[in-house]
């Protein structure tokens, strides 16, 4: 078990290194505008040249990357070129926002999907069909389009929830929840659509297992059979889809953050790639990959724990 974790961490580190290198190379491919963006339109050409040299943009790409890598392995992700703060500090304020959205969506969508999926699996027939149609409907429109509609209707026309901005958890619990409501809702619609179908098919598959019949033949209540045995066995594939969902959410949160003006990881990455703030971009990619690696590892560990064959070996 320990060696397994170490191996996964090892390959995770390799992933981070590869990802950061790829992004670094891409960003450096077209970096002439960086100095101009930092200094603005009134700066002279000499100023631009000086800034370019100061940032090390005239050095060979490998050298620049190694310079960054050296700092990164010591925990220093560098300094933003467009901001006085360190990359770690800036991203640290952003990560909780994106995580709040992603985790919130996963929680809400999981709860709803489990209910919906089990109901669909148990009561095949018109209810199942209806839920399938509703699921399809949820997947049909892109999350950012739903978000736009929600902003126009719920926020603008009905004035129910503040449409914009993010209230940190520390500042106000109710504010935090309110600022998350619409973003999570727009994302959860799509997430529930897919996940509920997954729960449904996993549950159907388990319900057809021989041991379910045998358990029933012992006279166990349907609730025991369902909530103890079926759910437990339907969990692994569902968890896998949940983790895929989470990773997709981290990515998809970018559009949502734009619509709701949330200061998350996605929006700072979009801005940074645009202006050429390479330390921020690479830092954001590193953090993204780290989160993905951790989530994958956790899910695999949970799945392993759930499976007695793996747990005891």
């Amino acid at each position: 078990m320990i060696s397994y974790i170490f191996r996964r961490i090892g390959s995770g580190i390799a992933l981070v290194a590869a990802a950061s290198f790829i992004v670094f190379a891409l960003m450096l491919a077209n970096s002439e505008h960086v100095a101009r963006n930092i200094l603005g339109d009134q700066a002279s050409v000499e100023q631009l040249a000086a800034k370019q040299a100061e940032l090390g943009l005239n050095d060979p790409m490998i050298l620049q990357y190694l310079h960054w890598l050296l700092g990164a392995v010591q925990g220093d992700l560098g300094q933003s070129w467009f901001n006085a703060e360190s990359v770690s500090y800036l991203l640290a304020t952003r990560v909780p926002v994106t995580l709040s959205i992603a985790v919130g969506t996963v929680i809400i969508s999981t709860v709803i999907s489990v209910v919906v999926g089990i109901v669909a699996a148990l009561y095949r027939g018109w209810l199942d069909k209806l839920l399938q149609v509703v699921s399809v409907a949820g997947l049909v429109f892109p999350g950012f389009w739903l978000a736009l509609v929600l902003v126009v209707k719920v926020s603008i026309d009905w004035g129910l929830v503040p449409a914009t901005g993010y209230t940190p958890f520390g500042e106000s619990l109710s504010g935090w929840l309110l600022s998350l409501t619409l973003p999570v809702f727009s994302l959860a619609i799509g997430a529930v659509a897919g996940l509920s179908q997954q729960v449904r098919s996993a549950t159907i598959a388990v319900l057809e297992m021989d041991y379910v019949r045998t358990l029933r033949s012992r006279g166990l209540s349907e609730a025991s059979v369902l909530f103890r045995h079926v759910l437990r066995n339907a969990a692994p594939p569902t968890l896998t889809v949940m983790s895929l969902n989470f990773i997709a959410l981290m990515s998809g949160a970018v559009m949502i953050e734009r619509v709701f003006a949330l200061p998350g990881l996605g929006s700072i990455a979009v801005d940074a790639t645009g202006v050429g703030d390479i330390p921020i971009v690479v830092g954001a990619v590193v953090i993204s990959v780290v989160i993905v690696v951790i989530v994958n590892l956790l899910i695999d560990l949970i799945n392993g724990w759930l499976n007695p064959k793996v747990r005891l070996s």
Binding site: V111, P162, S174, G175, L177, L178, R228, R232, A235
Partner: peptide, 30 residues
């Protein structure tokens, strides 16, 4: 696995309750 799932449900219920309760305070806290 039911234990964690149940915890999720409780958390979600609490969160929903909090949303509705705080909604009474209105979006305009100024």
């Amino acid at each position: 696995m039911k234990a964690p799932k149940r915890a999720y449900r409780v958390l979600a219920l609490a969160a929903t309750a909090a949303i509705f309760l705080s909604g009474c305070g209105g979006a305009n806290d100024k």
